[in-house]
Simulated scan of single mutants.
Amino acid sequence: MEGVVHMEFLKQGQTVNSERDISTLLALKLKLRRVRLDKDAILQHDNARPHTSHQTQKALRQMELTTLPHPSYSPDLAPSDYHLFPQFKKYLKGHHYDNDEEVIADVRRWCRGQSPEFFADGVRQLVKRWRLCVDCDGDYVEK
Results as ranks from 00 to 15, higher is better:
residue 52 T to V: 03
residue 100 D to Y: 07
residue 92 L to H: 04
residue 39 K to C: 12
residue 126 L to I: 09
residue 1 M to E: 15
residue 46 D to S: 08
residue 35 V to G: 08
residue 129 R to A: 06
residue 91 Y to D: 04
residue 130 W to G: 02
residue 134 V to W: 05
residue 116 P to Q: 09
residue 73 Y to N: 10
residue 91 Y to L: 07
residue 116 P to V: 14
residue 77 L to C: 04
residue 30 L to F: 09
residue 59 A to T: 08
residue 109 R to K: 12
residue 40 D to Y: 10
residue 29 K to I: 14
residue 85 F to D: 05
residue 140 Y to S: 06
residue 6 H to I: 04
residue 110 W to H: 02
residue 78 A to F: 14
residue 71 P to G: 02
residue 18 S to V: 07
residue 23 S to G: 11
residue 92 L to M: 10
residue 113 G to F: 03
residue 139 D to W: 02
residue 43 L to G: 07
residue 104 I to Q: 10
residue 37 L to D: 15
residue 70 H to P: 03
residue 77 L to P: 01
residue 87 Q to K: 12
residue 23 S to F: 09
residue 34 R to G: 02
residue 114 Q to G: 02
residue 89 K to T: 04
residue 99 N to S: 15
residue 86 P to Q: 03
residue 72 S to M: 10
residue 97 Y to I: 06
residue 112 R to M: 01
residue 73 Y to R: 13
residue 77 L to N: 03
residue 12 Q to N: 11
residue 139 D to E: 01
residue 106 D to I: 07
residue 4 V to S: 02
residue 97 Y to A: 12
residue 137 D to E: 00
residue 45 H to D: 10
residue 51 H to F: 13
residue 94 G to T: 02
residue 12 Q to G: 15
residue 135 D to E: 08
residue 137 D to K: 00
residue 100 D to G: 00
residue 46 D to P: 12
residue 133 C to G: 01
residue 70 H to M: 03
residue 27 A to L: 11
residue 17 N to A: 09
residue 95 H to Q: 12
residue 131 R to V: 02
residue 5 V to L: 12
residue 106 D to L: 06
residue 13 G to Y: 13
residue 143 K to E: 06
residue 24 T to I: 09
residue 47 N to M: 00
residue 127 V to N: 14
residue 29 K to V: 09
residue 22 I to G: 04
residue 102 E to G: 13
residue 62 Q to H: 13
residue 113 G to C: 00
residue 22 I to E: 06
residue 27 A to I: 06
residue 92 L to D: 03
residue 117 E to L: 10
residue 60 L to H: 12
residue 35 V to Q: 13
residue 20 R to A: 08
residue 46 D to C: 14
residue 87 Q to L: 11
residue 138 G to C: 05
residue 61 R to T: 15
residue 75 P to S: 08
residue 15 T to A: 01
residue 103 V to H: 05
residue 95 H to G: 03
residue 64 E to Y: 06
residue 45 H to S: 02
residue 39 K to A: 09
residue 24 T to L: 08
residue 73 Y to K: 07
residue 101 E to I: 07
residue 39 K to V: 11
residue 56 T to S: 10
residue 97 Y to E: 07
residue 126 L to A: 06
residue 55 Q to W: 01
residue 16 V to C: 05
residue 88 F to D: 05
residue 109 R to N: 07
residue 30 L to S: 15
residue 48 A to L: 09
residue 36 R to V: 09
residue 66 T to D: 15
residue 109 R to S: 07
residue 42 I to L: 14
residue 62 Q to V: 06
residue 121 D to W: 05
residue 60 L to A: 10
residue 94 G to S: 09
residue 84 L to R: 00
residue 84 L to Q: 03
residue 79 P to C: 12
residue 4 V to M: 05
residue 1 M to T: 13
residue 117 E to C: 06
residue 87 Q to P: 01
